[in-house]
Design a protein around this nucleic acid. Structure first.
Lengths: 198, 198
DNA sequence: ATTTTTTTATACCGATCGGTATACAATTCG
DNA sequence: CGAATTGTATACCGATCGGTATAAAAAAAT
């Protein structure tokens, strides 16, 4: 009942996600958002609560639509394939022709004012969660004798995440996909060269 | 002649550098700056021009006082030692007890509004310059048969810079120095394991 | 047809943004 | 001692920030 909404919520959220991705949380103004989404401020606040709520919903959409490769990668039977799928998945997302360069989870609020501290904290936890999930997967791999010898699972997880975060900066600085792939190839020599347990 | 300045320019610049480092260019307000530096706005504008000029001078100071290890590292005779000194130098700076976590060159303006586009561009060029300098050093190493076989000097330079940028994100997310060192140890296995030319 | 409910459009809110005009204080030079 | 010069303090500037009050518009329910 009542007057029907004149815009598509999902389309609007997609636009908001791309804006936050490209300009960060604080760098994206409500004017940027309302003009980009093609709606007025009362409509935005009616559907998404406020700027912070909109960002969190945009982040949720980002995880669901752009980071889905991550949990898929964890299902690979071999640890090396998990690592490779994650590294290439990030690089692909960070350098997609459509959509901004880099990573929303990093571009969003790396360093910011106190006003964005909550968003910053949320993004840090987001990164740590991914690293922890990967660490758990590598723990399993360790028990299966499927890791390079002499390294802790959580250290390997941090290694993979560090490289992916590095490629996010590279992409945001203009590096193209093939350049990131060559970095990833080198990072993966770790697995090729190292002696795998058992 | 005239009234003598009541503050130390170098001290004020040091404070500005730390603020920009911790909160980014756009996340640091003039109020943050004047309160932190202990001076008034007319004094700030008299000495540093404007916010953008202040940031650029802070960046210059950062390069001079915190990134000096970089060009020192390039003087190492062996490419592997160059790489290791750079990686550990970044990690040390990113996790120093005194001073903010991460890297000013990345925290400063990774994703931002149009108002900070010039600063953003300047920081991108800054990163690319470092990568190019390292690439040139590795070109020399290649001619000396001092590189792992099968890789281009500029790809190796991007590999090292990608890891350093990754550790900057890790540091900004709370990782401590020993955690970054373990990542670096893995990244350097590239050199240990790989066959070095000639 | 009227009431009720929801969305939209406009105009506005106080606070803060980067930046500056003006007046005064503190020094050197003649 | 002035006079000239430079720095500091206060108060202010227009613009923009995130957010909202008010009322009109568009649908469903009675």
């Amino acid at each position: 009942m009542g007057r029907p909404r004149e815009f598509d919520v999902d389309d609007a959220l997609e636009t908001a996600m791309e804006l936050f991705w490209r300009k960060g949380y604080e760098g994206t103004s409500l004017t940027d958002l309302t003009e980009g989404m093609g709606i007025t401020k009362p409509s935005l606040y009616g559907v998404f609560g406020n700027k912070e709520g909109l960002f969190l919903k945009a982040l949720e959409r980002y995880e669901r639509t752009k980071m889905n490769f991550f949990h898929e990668a964890l299902k690979e039977p071999k640890a090396r394939d998990v690592a490779e799928k994650i590294l290439r998945g990030f690089a692909d997302s960070q350098t997609a022709e459509t959509g901004p360069s880099g990573c929303l989870g990093i571009n969003g609020a790396l360093a910011c004012s106190e006003a964005a501290a909550e968003i910053q904290k949320c993004l840090i936890e987001n990164r740590q969660r991914g690293e922890r999930d990967l660490g758990r997967r590598f723990e399993r791999a360790a028990s299966e004798g499927d890791l390079p010898a002499g390294h802790e699972p959580y250290d390997l997880a941090r290694y993979i995440m560090t490289i992916s975060q590095g490629t996010a900066i590279q992409a945001a600085s203009g590096a193209d996909r093939s350049a990131l792939y060559r970095v990833i190839d080198m990072a993966l020599q770790f697995w090729s060269d190292a002696v795998v347990q058992n």
